[in-house]
């Protein structure tokens, strides 16, 4: 049994192209609320691009040079936008009951992405090398220590936090977003709730 052909078959069956990138959607995908997910992805792309530039030039650049500080500002506002859109996307998914009809794992992957993003932002805040970082690190350490995490995740250690922020965490977030998107595409958008009442229109009954 060839492992390669087995994997090839599994991939082509499990991840068909027309499912991953469909050119049509159910007609009920008819609201601006469906755009918050993609706005979150857009913000993440910006975070990665500005983050790569900040990492390439280093801390002295983002504090000292005018252009460096501007990229610091871009990264800051991209982070704000990322959380802004992600939270509103979460509200949307909640009010749609988007986990219905076998979409539980899609919801779980989204919530995990949100929680991991919070840790990612935290490692960024303590990597800035300004008063904000000093304060957040010294305050955050008590919380980390109180549950034992501080023993191996030392928020006062710039080298460790910076490594987490510029490599480990972005890779994890990107991976989670990849899983989330794949699940969204494979399972499709959830059908609208049936309207309650005697004249119930069974427009979204699961076949």
């Amino acid at each position: 049994m060839s492992w390669t052909s087995s994997l090839q078959r599994k991939l082509s069956e499990g991840l068909p192209y027309d499912q991953l990138l469909p050119d049509e959607q159910p007609a009920y995908v008819h609201s601006y609320v469906y755009l918050f997910g993609v706005a979150t992805i857009g913000s993440f792309v910006l975070l990665v691009v500005t983050g790569v530039i900040l990492a390439a030039f280093g801390p002295q650049w983002w504090h000292g040079a005018a252009v460096g500080h501007f990229f610091n500002s871009l990264h800051f506002w991209a982070a704000q936008a990322f959380f802004f859109f992600m939270v509103v996307h979460l509200w949307t998914a909640f009010f749609q009951g988007a986990w219905r009809d076998g979409r539980g794992l899609t919801w779980v992957s989204g919530v995990v992405t949100f929680l991991v993003s919070i840790v990612t932002a935290f490692t960024g805040y303590v990597s800035q090398q300004n008063f904000d970082s000093q304060w957040i690190a010294t305050q955050g350490k008590d919380a980390m220590n109180s549950v034992g995490v501080g023993a191996f995740f030392n928020v006062l250690n710039f080298g460790q936090m910076y490594g987490f922020h510029v490599f480990i965490m972005p890779v994890v977030v990107a991976g989670l977003m990849g899983v989330h998107l794949t699940l969204v595409r494979l399972r499709g958008v959830v059908r609208p709730y049936d309207l309650p009442g005697p004249s119930k229109r069974r427009v979204s009954e699961v076949a």
Binding site: A39, S43, L46, F70, L74, H75, W77, F131, D132
Partner: peptide, 18 residues
């Protein structure tokens, strides 16, 4: 759209750096 939004915010409001 997000790029334009972020560039405008960064240009107008800068970022904290005490």
């Amino acid at each position: 759209a997000v790029t334009v939004l972020v560039i405008v915010l960064a240009a107008l409001l800068s970022s904290p750096d005490v």
